[in-house]
Simulated assay, not measured.
Amino acid sequence: MKFKRYIVLLIILNIVLVILSIYSILLGTIPIKSGELFNYLLKGTTGNIIKDKIIGILRLPRTIGAITAGMAIALAGVLMQGYFRNPLADPYLMGVASGASLGTVLYIFTSTLFKFGIPHNIYGFIISAYIGSIITMYIVINIAKIVKQLSTLLICGLMIGAVVSGLTTIVIYLNSYFSGENHNLSSYLVWEMGSVSNLTWDMIILMAIIIFPVSVITYIFLSKKLDAYLLGEYYALSVGIDTKYLRKWLIILSCILTATVVAFTGPIAFIGVICPIIARLICGTSKHVYVIPIAMLLGAIFLVFADILTRPGVLIPLSSNPLPLLCPLSIVGAPIAIFIYLKTRKGTINE
């Protein structure tokens, strides 16, 4: 890939992301004018206290959180596709995101069940999500050692995700029964389908502290190793790469990225499978030094756009209720995933 083309792609995608982010902040039940937004960014106020709070407490965190989460899930998809060496590996489709969800919900449930209490904090959410995602990933990896066909592995991953999602729903209902707080049930179910609307600055800062160093480390230390590994394990060994060590870090880093996002937003579907593939197609190469930044930008763009579509009245006119992220992500992502699978079967798309 020519470097000039890569720079042009970066510029175009950044422009698209900025435009979508501005529109995301302006759009809502109480509209914000572009002039008011620029006054807020430059002067710290729109001149209206209510609109200042809407921008600073609700929409800015929501938009920045969507950008951060989208980048993380897209990168997790790149790492998982690199590990399995196929374009349909994805934290959501392989059940890893569902495992992180189950870990988080179990953490909440234990605090309700045991009256002496386990204190809730954002660190507990993340650690429980890590444990759930790593356990699920371990199961998928062991199945992958037995199953060689991509289609069978994908079906197994989907089934594991379905089982884990079912267990999560059971735990949510039990939590509602034991706590006697039925209003929590609907909020948990909405969270399980993905949402960035409840993110706070504390959550976003913690997400960024974890996600961005992991992204930089991955880009600097794993890009070339992933290129070699995609050419085959024997080739990677021949150029001096410890493939067992590489695979271990691919698992750890992808689980960290996925679990960190899921702990606060719920599972994010299809971003991890479609963004790396589109990145490879528009880059015209599989070299990760180009693919990783482009995939992360695409992840941010897709998630901000999906979040815009969830706003009341956007997809469903006159509606006053927001949609979960799973709705637009599934509508857009599932057909693309089917297309990728069919092309993979024909051998026209590969790593």
Rank of each mutant, 00 (worst) to 15 (best):
I64V: 08
T46I: 12
I55K: 01
I57M: 04
I55E: 00
I25L: 08
Y40Q: 14
P31S: 11
K43E: 15
T68Y: 12
G44W: 06
I32C: 03
L41Q: 10
L27I: 15
G35F: 06
I49E: 05
A72S: 05
I25E: 07
E36I: 09
A72P: 01
R62W: 05
P31H: 11
M71R: 03
L60F: 10
K43S: 15
I54P: 01
Y23V: 08
G56V: 03
D52A: 06
K43N: 15
G65R: 12
P31V: 07
D52E: 06
L27T: 14
T46V: 12
L27C: 13
I30Q: 07
I25W: 09
L41F: 13
I57L: 04
S24D: 14
I30N: 09
T68E: 13
G47S: 07
P31W: 10
R62H: 06
T68A: 12
L60H: 00
L27S: 15
I67K: 03
E36P: 03
P61A: 04
T29S: 14
I30E: 08
F38N: 15
I22N: 08
I55Q: 02
I50M: 05
K43A: 14
T45P: 06
I32N: 07
K43R: 15
I50H: 06
K33F: 13
A66N: 07
L37G: 14
A69C: 14
G35Y: 08
T68Q: 06
G35D: 15
L42T: 13
L42H: 10
I49T: 07
I57N: 02
T63C: 05
L41C: 04
Y23C: 09
T45N: 11
I49P: 02
R62K: 10
I64H: 09
R62T: 00
G56S: 14
E36F: 12
K33H: 14
G65Q: 10
T68H: 10
A69T: 11
S21F: 07
R62Y: 05
R62Q: 07
G70A: 07
I55G: 03
L26C: 11
P31K: 09
I22L: 12
E36V: 12
N39Y: 08
G35Q: 09
S24A: 15
L37I: 10
M71Y: 01
I30D: 01
T46F: 10
T46P: 05
G56I: 04
K33R: 12
D52Y: 04
G28A: 08
A72G: 00
F38Q: 15
G47L: 06
I50V: 07
I50P: 00
I57P: 01
E36S: 13
E36T: 08
